[in-house]
Amino acid sequence: MPDSRTYIDIHVLQTVPPSNLNRDDAGSPKQAIYGGARRARVSSQAWKRATRLAFDDELHIPRRTLGTRTKRIATLLATRLADRTGLDNEAAARLGNALLAHDLNIKPGRKAEETAYLLFVGHNQIDAIVDLVADRATELAALADDALTKTVADLPVRAQLATKHPIDVALFGRMVADIPTLNVDAATQVAHALSVHPVEIEFDYYTAVDDEKTRDDDAGAAMIGTVEFTSATLYRFATLNVQHLAQNLENDQEAALAAARAFLRAFVTSMPTGHQNTFAHRTVPSLVSYLVRTDQPVNLVSAFEQPIRSRDGIAAKAVVRLAEELNHTSTAWGLTPLAKATVYDPASNLTAISPNNRGANATSLEQAFGTPQVLEEAIDSVLNAVAPRLGERTPR
Results as ranks from 00 to 15, higher is better:
187 A>F: 09
73 I>S: 01
1 M>A: 15
289 S>N: 12
315 A>M: 11
24 D>H: 10
278 T>C: 05
187 A>W: 03
366 E>D: 13
168 D>L: 14
335 L>Y: 10
384 N>L: 09
118 L>C: 04
345 D>H: 11
311 R>V: 00
71 K>I: 01
79 T>Q: 13
52 R>S: 02
248 N>D: 12
344 Y>D: 05
348 S>H: 15
166 P>S: 09
260 A>Y: 12
377 E>A: 08
346 P>Y: 01
21 L>K: 00
73 I>R: 01
333 W>F: 12
73 I>V: 14
264 L>W: 13
176 V>I: 15
121 V>M: 04
289 S>H: 13
284 V>Y: 11
347 A>F: 08
394 T>H: 10
92 A>V: 03
32 A>L: 04
134 A>Y: 01
383 L>G: 01
290 Y>T: 04
256 A>F: 04
322 L>Y: 07
46 A>N: 11
309 R>S: 03
173 G>D: 13
66 L>K: 11
75 T>Q: 03
116 A>I: 09
296 Q>R: 14
218 D>E: 04
201 I>L: 08
295 D>W: 03
313 G>R: 02
30 K>Q: 06
95 L>I: 13
158 R>S: 14
148 L>E: 08
365 L>K: 02
79 T>W: 11
19 S>G: 05
374 V>K: 12
386 V>G: 05
338 L>N: 07
296 Q>V: 06
91 A>Q: 12
340 K>L: 10
242 V>L: 02
14 Q>H: 09
42 V>I: 12
139 E>I: 09
291 L>Y: 04
351 T>L: 11
82 A>Q: 14
252 D>V: 03
222 A>K: 02
90 E>Y: 10
140 L>G: 12
269 T>I: 11
315 A>I: 06
60 H>A: 10
274 G>H: 06
90 E>S: 14
360 A>L: 12
73 I>A: 07
61 I>K: 01
321 R>T: 06
348 S>P: 15
115 T>R: 11
199 V>G: 02
283 T>G: 01
55 F>V: 05
375 L>W: 04
241 N>Q: 05
118 L>Q: 06
246 A>L: 09
117 Y>L: 01
56 D>A: 05
280 A>E: 07
63 R>D: 13
155 L>H: 11
242 V>R: 00
306 Q>N: 12
395 P>N: 11
274 G>D: 06
62 P>L: 05
305 E>V: 00
20 N>K: 01
64 R>T: 00
183 N>D: 15
291 L>A: 12
84 R>K: 13
161 L>C: 02
35 G>C: 08
308 I>L: 15
343 V>A: 04
106 I>A: 14
149 T>G: 09
338 L>I: 02
17 P>I: 10
149 T>D: 15
173 G>R: 02
145 D>Q: 04
113 E>L: 06
65 T>R: 15
80 R>F: 10
27 G>K: 06
161 L>I: 00
246 A>T: 07
234 L>S: 01
45 Q>Y: 07
174 R>I: 03
335 L>G: 00
